[in-house]
């Protein structure tokens, strides 16, 4: 079922007198629970596409239809509400709040998403998700005492604690070594499948592609190929 559709999406920047077209009319659809990877050379427009789709920057033209509504015509507050309650984010760096413990990072996300759970239920949910990402033994730790891989696990837990419909991941393994990258990718794949979360991910790392359901190859602001990977781990 397609519930997230991008139609004729364009993005142009004006640099002095030069107008630069980053996206030149992108069309794509995301299926519920599917994991899609955006790949391509630097400057192909994949990160721009991800951030526009996530409502982090506006498009110059085109539509981003989420649950039948065009995000591109919404005001800042409407977009913020969608980001808080229906989207989840994982970035290249974990970007954890330095003065919150692991448990508090997740509680904050539940607050931000205006979760209807009471405090007791919220704590139980935090414990459950931390167990799923294998971080329940570090719930009172501050980010400064965590390793890179642990931080990224917590960032992923924060991104899914409020049960978002779409997870946007911008090179989530770029700051990790090969072993840790595979662990994180495996975790993202398993949990998003179990929780039926749709994932749109940007990656440079070809080793991560077997974990995905669909690969979209971009070049010069256009989609070159849209295909399913050959092998999955």
């Amino acid at each position: 079922m397609e519930f997230f559709t991008v139609n004729e999406l364009k993005k142009a920047f004006t640099n002095g007198e030069v107008k630069e077209e980053i996206l030149k009319g992108i069309n794509l659809s995301l299926k519920k629970g599917e994991m899609t990877a955006l790949v391509g050379a630097s400057g192909s427009g994949k990160s721009t596409l991800l951030t526009i789709a996530a409502g982090l920057q506006p498009a110059s033209d085109g539509q981003i239809l989420f649950e039948g509504k065009n995000i591109n015509t919404m005001n800042q507050e409407q977009i913020r509400k969608i980001r808080a309650s229906k989207f989840g984010f994982v970035f290249q760096f974990a970007h954890l709040v330095p003065f919150l413990t692991v448990e508090e990072q997740l509680m904050l996300m539940l607050d931000v998403s205006e979760s209807r759970l009471n405090k007791h239920e919220q704590k139980s949910e935090v414990n459950r998700i931390l167990k799923l990402v294998g971080m329940d033994h570090r719930k009172t730790a501050y980010p400064s005492s965590l390793s890179g891989g642990e931080k990224q696990r917590v960032a992923f837990a924060r991104a899914i604690i409020h049960q978002p419909m779409v997870l946007f991941a911008d090179e989530p393994t770029a700051s990790l070594d090969s072993k840790r990258s595979k662990e994180i990718m495996s975790l993202i794949r398993d949990l998003t499948k179990n929780l039926n979360i749709t994932t749109l991910m940007v990656t440079h790392d070809e080793e991560m592609l077997p974990y995905t359901d669909r690969i979209i190859k971009m070049s010069d602001g256009l989609i070159l190929q849209n295909f399913e990977p050959q092998a999955k781990s």
């Binding site: 913020r80 509400k81 980001r83 808080a84 931000v112």
Partner: peptide, 13 residues
């Protein structure tokens, strides 16, 4: 600034 940006990105007012 980076922290505030991330908090805004995840939906904090």
């Amino acid at each position: 600034i980076a922290l505030y940006g991330i908090l805004k990105a995840i939906g904090l007012k």
